[in-house]
Design a protein around this nucleic acid. Sequence first.
DNA 1: CATACTGTAATAAAATATGTTACAAATTTA
DNA 2: TAAATTTGTAACATATTTTATTACAGTATG
Lengths: 135, 135
Amino acid sequence: MISGKFAITIHILTLLNKFPNDYLSSEFIAGSMNVNPVLVRKEIANLKAHHIVESKEGKNGGTKLAVNSSELTLKEIFEMTFETIGLGFAKNQPNPDCPVGKKINQNLEALYSEMNEKVSAQLQNISLEDFSNQF
Amino acid sequence: MISGKFAITIHILTLLNKFPNDYLSSEFIAGSMNVNPVLVRKEIANLKAHHIVESKEGKNGGTKLAVNSSELTLKEIFEMTFETIGLGFAKNQPNPDCPVGKKINQNLEALYSEMNEKVSAQLQNISLEDFSNQF
DNA sequence: CATACTGTAATAAAATATGTTACAAATTTA
DNA sequence: TAAATTTGTAACATATTTTATTACAGTATG
């Protein structure tokens, strides 16, 4: 299972980019993706914490982009919503008396770290504007 | 949340590679990773279906590698346990009347597809033997 | 024939993700 | 200034997925 944070966040940002002059309400945004408005507001809270969007409370309030979409890369969005990708770790404490158990997580970590570098390199080349222009 | 299938499978294979002449029991393997033996047997069933291991029922039975560990790549293991990586999709049917909602999953799919190519390229360069030699 | 395994199904428990309700606080507009 | 609308957030409920457990038939070994 993968949390939908990245997908929700990029959807929000794409919409905001399509209406750069409007404050969009969480209800409007939620209507485009068919999720609960509270979920949208939670991701917006995260975006606000990273100064990517600004929002206005009260009537006719909502959220708009606070950065230039050509300067925001998918890598940054990835880092705000996923810490890292990977293929999972040994969940329970593996047996420390077994040479494999003792080092498995460390070796997986090294493997995934390299994966993240590749993925980050890819995502860094795509701006929100690029992504948004596909629609 | 990420299913631990890859981590469990590579752990199993590393152990099998360390004891190439023995049939290891699911209980022994489970002991190294501290999970339930039934989980191990399920992943072994998957490996058997791909002809990566062979197993022997009955007393003193167990599982051993059926391929040369220098010829099995992590890419193959990845493909047996994860179909693909990605950062999630819009889960509910997005609004088809919204230009963004209509195409979001398609565009995410394209993005993730490229991610998978990068990751596969990396994993293809690492054999089970390489991975195993780190322990 | 007793023992120790695999194979597999069925079910239970735990973890995580998503949805819902509720409401205080803020801001607009009439 | 009062009504309406929207954010922000907490608390809780539901759904989904993952992991664990139990059970037992079938199979090989000695």
